[in-house]
């Protein structure tokens, strides 16, 4: 081996071994567990069931419901984060050099721990002390603070719990988009202006296409994170009422820890893992790659 190859290997090895032991090995263990009927409390007592856990995972209505809920939650959260974040970036870009203070304040939620965001939003939304409804009454949108039961209405709760997520990560979208916007060469916009494009057309034909890689990154990073969400919802509702805010990761957690059903939960967790990787890969190929060609 050349001295160069030895150097590369030597530098790479510690991280590779570490990730091998603490990521690759647990993934193998997860897949292995998923092929057995096995309880979390007694992982040594196991019975080979082959793919039965997977069949079960793909046919169980509660699992399917939690998967659907995860999609609802992620799409809802991502859509609003994107809308608000992108608008904020455009606004900041429009006021350019005067936007520093704005951006500083806007970045505040960025580093609020998810647990705190969850608690805070629970406090804002909860029952009769949630201040949000009093605010809505004050501006005349609802008549009585009890009109909207954000966290106990079974049809609404999966969207209500996303508020915290939206609040927490809009700034990420905004700041990344802002950086992307400031990276667009000014003369490109000016050339479009000289070519007679109005503001809307300039946005559609110049700004948006140039922002494609940024948008791709945001969609991938935020989409995957939203789909993985656990703590934020856990702290707000623990999946309730009546499982109506139980997303996929929480469903897996409940079956693994509360019901101790390690084998079947592992099958779902394995599916979850591969779907996440697949989605990210797809998004990468579809958006990022084509933007770079």
């Amino acid at each position: 081996m050349s001295s160069e190859n030895r150097f590369v290997l030597g530098m790479l090895m510690p991280a590779a071994l570490f990730l091998g032991l603490l990521v690759a090995y647990p993934i193998c263990l997860l897949i292995y567990n998923s092929l057995f009927a096995v309880k979390t409390i007694a992982p040594d007592v196991r019975e080979w069931v082959g793919l039965a856990n997977y069949v079960n995972a793909l046919t169980s209505p509660r699992i399917a419901e939690s998967a659907a809920r995860t999609i609802k939650y992620s799409v809802f959260a991502l859509a609003f984060e994107f809308l608000f974040g992108f608008c904020a970036a455009l606004l900041f870009n429009a006021i350019a050099d005067k936007s520093r203070l704005h951006r500083t304040v806007f970045a505040l939620p960025l580093m609020v721990p998810p647990i705190v965001a969850g608690l805070l939003w629970r406090f804002l939304l909860i029952g009769n002390i949630g201040i949000l409804n009093y605010g809505l009454v004050a501006i005349g949108l609802i008549r009585d603070p009890g009109d909207i039961q954000w966290l106990s209405d079974q049809d609404l709760v999966i969207y209500s719990v996303a508020f915290a997520d939206i609040w927490l990560t809009t700034s990420f979208v905004a700041l990344v988009s802002y950086a992307g916007l400031t990276n667009i060469p000014k003369d490109l916009i000016e050339a479009a202006r000289i070519d007679g494009a109005n503001a809307l057309r300039r946005f559609w034909h110049v700004t948006l296409p140039m922002m494609r890689p940024v948008i791709a990154v945001v969609v991938i990073v935020r989409g995957v994170d939203a789909a993985k969400t656990f703590d934020l919802i856990w702290i707000q509702t623990q999946g309730g009422p009546a499982h109506s805010s139980e997303v996929f990761s929480m469903n897996i957690y409940q079956r693994m820890v509360r019901y101790g059903d390690l084998g079947s939960a592992s099958a779902s967790a394995t599916l979850f893992l591969f779907v996440m990787i697949l989605l990210a890969a797809l998004a990468y190929w579809k958006i990022w790659r084509s933007a770079h060609d």
Partner: peptide, 21 residues
């Protein structure tokens, strides 16, 4: 690429195997 993939892995998937480890 492996590091990138690792970023996508849901914590809930690795939690219990990590517990065993």
């Amino acid at each position: 690429l492996f590091a990138l993939v690792t970023r996508m892995v849901p914590a809930v998937s690795l939690g219990v195997p990590l517990f065993q480890l």
